[in-house]
Design a protein around this nucleic acid. Structure first.
Length: 432
RNA sequence: GCGCAGGUGGCAGAGCGGUCAAUUGCAUUAGACUGUAAAUCUAACGCCUCUACGGCUACGGAGGUUCGAAUCCUCCCCUGCGCA
């Protein structure tokens, strides 16, 4: 049951209470902390409450892969995670269709406009690439110019061709009309709407998601359209196949950055008997708010809406302003492990030498367990640089607490009719 | 004193006549991270610069051999281990 307590007058923002069919409750807008393998990285289960976690999202694909046959013995996420009171959702595996597939091939993240350098899209060959090329004997081997001064090696002109092929080889997913084949160490494994539902019912989350095809920001219109048709068909299949009635099933709106596709998807998915809705896929960095608006346009007001994989504080504001109720993102947890610490003034990198010997608190006035212990920026710096695992734990605790506290302040602002002011103030501080 | 093994860029440690300003790792610096292939990845890392497939100076020191030396030879200095 979803009850909206207050709607904002100047935007589509709303604040309410989501009570799942299983009787657990989340105050919205809320942020789901990512616990892919049924655990939040660097945050012990018993500290979830201290971090003010009320919502967790785990992952069907990864748990399915990790558990194998043990999935039959799985006691359910609440028992396994020892979080009986928290609302847990599971992603369907639809994101892995992208992240292990075109995400790798295109070398991009889902938001778009970001080239993920870790996937090797640099135009100049890295030493590893060069070595790989050298090990490929034949006409494309490195050419030598035996003139002065000494021999010098040139990158071959056809490097890009090799690069393209290498990128394609990175794609581990084969998509069919029925679902997706994932290349794993044990060969290809098929995951489609039906199996995703079965697994999610075994995992036992409060909220489960329809199996969709998350597309790449680099996919052009025609592909997005075809993928959308699949996602819509799979959505209906998920509804048809579902058996448990103590889990809420959310449908997923797709359509890339195209207005007509997003609106069509919103209408189509919004008219299906889902218990809530999620918005997935790519948004384009600068277009996010607009795309969310299109995606929400066809959804019923009275049902909860989740924005998948987003995000940063500024994006949360976009989402809430467009009527989103819940979010999830790896940013608080992943960035914490990488040294990224969030504060009201924006993010800073604890590994930077500017923090060396700093007695400054991580965030002035913060009452999270990490800050309450008196951990300073200088201490975090030292721990990160000495590879002390507590660095990641302290930062993770702080970040999760920060995002959850931010959400609760935003809820209060909406309930007090002050969302616009809250948004303005938050954005102002972030700009500095 | 004798014997052996060594002295390479901030450190460790490859290279052993030309594709070597020198593999790699660490450290450092910068950047990234948006339904977690991620406690990860990428880049830079002698100096100068017109940022180049450029110039200069470099593999303990000084000489030498060679068209060409971090790589070979001679002497010197230093370090470790063993024997006195």
């Amino acid at each position: 049951m979803f009850s909206i307590l207050k709607k904002d007058n100047n935007s589509r923002a709303r604040s309410g209470t989501l009570t799942t069919f299983s009787g657990r409750t989340v105050e919205t807008p809320a942020y789901a902390i990512v616990g892919t393998h049924a655990e939040v990285r660097c945050l012990p289960a018993e500290k979830m409450k201290d971090a003010r976690v009320q919502l967790i999202i785990a992952n069907t694909y990864h748990l399915w892969q990790r558990l194998g046959k043990d999935i039959e013995k799985f006691q359910g996420l609440h028992a396994e995670m020892n979080t009986p009171d928290m609302v847990i959702m599971t992603d369907s595996g639809g994101f892995q269709v992208f992240s292990l597939g075109f995400g790798r091939e295109h070398g991009v993240g889902k938001v778009g406009g970001i080239r993920n350098s870790s996937v090797g899209t640099e135009r100049s060959p890295s030493p590893a690439d060069r070595a790989a090329l050298r090990s490929h004997p034949g006409e494309s081997d490195v050419r030598r110019i035996p003139s002065s001064p000494g021999f010098r090696e040139f990158p071959p002109d056809d490097f890009l061709i090799h690069n393209e092929r290498n990128m394609r080889d990175k794609n581990l997913v084969r998509i069919t009309e029925e679902g997706a084949y994932f290349m794993t160490d044990d060969g290809e494994r098929f995951l489609g709407p039906k199996l995703s539902m079965e697994i999610q019912e075994k995992l036992g989350a409060d909220i489960i998601l329809a199996f969709d095809e998350c597309t790449s920001p680099e996919h052009e219109y025609e592909y997005q359209k075809q993928a959308l048709a699949r996602t819509h068909r799979w959505a209906e299949e998920c509804i048809a196949v579902k058996t448990r009635n103590d889990q809420m099933l959310y449908g997923i709106v797709q359509g890339g950055v195209f207005e007509d596709l997003r609106k069509e998807s919103s209408r189509y998915i919004g008219n299906l008997p889902f218990d809530g809705f999620a918005i997935g896929g790519s948004f384009g960095e600068g277009k996010m708010r607009e795309v969310i608006g299109w995606s929400v346009s066809g959804l019923p007001e009275e049902k909860p809406r989740h924005l998948l994989g987003i995000g940063k504080i500024e994006n949360i504001l976009d989402g809430v302003a467009e009527g989103i109720d819940t979010f999830d993102c790896v940013i608080p947890t992943r960035e914490a492990r990488h040294g990224g610490v969030w504060t009201r003034e924006g993010r800073f990198d604890a590994k930077k030498s500017a923090n060396k010997n700093s007695d400054a608190p991580i965030e002035k006035g913060c009452v999270c367990p990490t800050c309450a212990m008196g951990v300073t920026r200088g201490m975090l710096f030292d721990m990160f640089h000495s590879k002390d695992l507590r660095a990641g734990e302290y930062a993770t605790m702080h970040n999760i607490f920060f995002f959850n506290t931010f959400m609760s302040e935003m809820r209060r602002a909406i309930q007090n009719g002050m969302f616009r002011e809250f948004e303005k103030e938050t954005r102002g501080k972030l700009k500095k």
